[in-house]
């Protein structure tokens, strides 16, 4: 009825990210700002994850593979060419002797993420349900294993460091908003709508002529490219990285963020990432001691991680469909019909 609904749906997640960026850059101590920048990058990673998982309804444990590929390609290729032979002597000559700029490294990360996802997706997107989940988990296992031991393409089991730390508030925010824009554009496109129809009712979608395999493959590829891109953002935020930072922990964390926010809406992805990040920051700071209304609270080290887990559980128990219930944002309308009341 109202034609501007889609604009509300798009602006809500963008506004949240912008608000988080502006508020934290203005009012948070500079020591804490990197935590908020990480939160913004998480928003981007979860939004990229959402493009596949949210629209297809297929749980993938593999999207962090593409984050990892993006992170390591962007990282390796932006270390100054002069220092590379010294720190990474075993690299293939092509990788060892060349370097590219920050922006090109993000393009490279997105490209490699997309190509990798496409290649993996061709066979894997035939699977659904648990088989798809485990096969994508296997992809993550292979990616992690190869990145950890094959020192011709990366640092191997050592830390990749000396990466230019170019991801600041500006880049993180623009990056996250770009991912949100692409995700939103995809979701409203014909392809996106077809995939969502297939998620609701695969049989009916097939009967309507939708090629589910192809639609899943597009979403997987797009999600892979976006994930690669966010990996580039992430590595340029961290400055140094090890393979286990883009492995199971990150996979569980980002999936948890998505589900806690509400798996089937972009708003859910953004809200989940922000909510869990904020709790993590808040509880983490309470280990260093915080003051609430004049009370000094200081939790023992390690409590915050336990606390985050408890918060996640409580949210899931209270709102099993996620904070947003899997719905996009819409303004409460004064003209809304009175809802049919249950009992």
């Amino acid at each position: 009825m109202r034609r501007t609904t889609w604009l509300q749906e798009l602006l809500a997640p963008i506004a949240l990210v912008a608000l988080l960026a502006i508020a934290s850059s203005l009012w948070v101590s500079s020591a804490d700002q990197s935590k908020f920048q990480t939160a913004i990058v998480y928003v981007a990673i979860v939004a990229a994850l959402y493009v596949f998982v949210g629209n297809s309804g297929v749980l993938s444990f593999g999207q962090v593979s593409f984050v990892a590929v993006g992170a390591f390609s962007a990282g390796v290729m932006t270390i100054p060419a002069g220092t590379k032979p010294g720190v990474l002597p075993t690299l293939f000559p092509l990788l060892r002797d060349h370097s590219i700029s920050n922006v090109w490294s993000l393009v490279l990360a997105a490209g490699l993420g997309g190509v990798y996802a496409f290649a993996v997706g061709i066979p894997l997107m035939r699977l659904s349900g648990i088989a798809a989940g485990i096969a994508t988990l296997a992809v993550l296992g292979i990616t992690y294993n190869l990145l950890t031991y094959w020192n011709s393409i990366g640092p191997g089991a050592t830390t990749l460091s000396l990466i230019p730390e170019t991801t600041d508030y500006w880049q993180a925010t623009v990056g996250a908003i770009s991912v949100i824009l692409v995700a939103f554009g995809y979701q409203r496109s014909r392809f996106g709508r077809q995939l969502r129809a297939a998620r609701e009712d695969p049989a009916a979608a097939r009967a309507a002529g939708i090629d589910i395999h192809r639609q899943r493959l597009w979403a997987f590829t797009l999600s892979g490219a976006l994930s690669g891109f966010t990996g580039g953002l992430y590595v340029h935020l961290l400055g140094s990285i090890q393979t286990n930072q883009v492995y199971l922990d990150l996979t569980f964390l980002t999936l948890a963020m998505l589900v806690v926010g509400g798996i089937s809406s972009l708003l859910g992805a953004v809200v989940g990432a922000i909510a869990i990040s904020l709790f993590t920051i808040l509880l983490g700071n309470s280990e260093e001691g915080i003051h609430v209304f004049g009370w000094g609270i200081k939790a023992p080290a390690g409590t915050s991680l336990v606390g985050v887990a408890v918060v996640m559980l409580v949210i899931l128990l209270l709102r099993p469909a996620g904070i947003t219930g899997g719905r996009e944002f819409s303004l409460p309308s004064t003209f809304a019909r009175p809802r049919l009341r249950s009992r």
């Binding site: 749980l59 569980f252 887990a309 559980l313 899931l316 469909a321």
Partner: peptide, 17 residues
């Protein structure tokens, strides 16, 4: 009775806890 993904993520949370 919740979505399978919700229960799955609950097990992540418990594992983490």
């Amino acid at each position: 009775t919740a979505d399978p993904s919700t229960m799955l993520v609950a097990t992540f949370a418990i594992a983490y806890l």
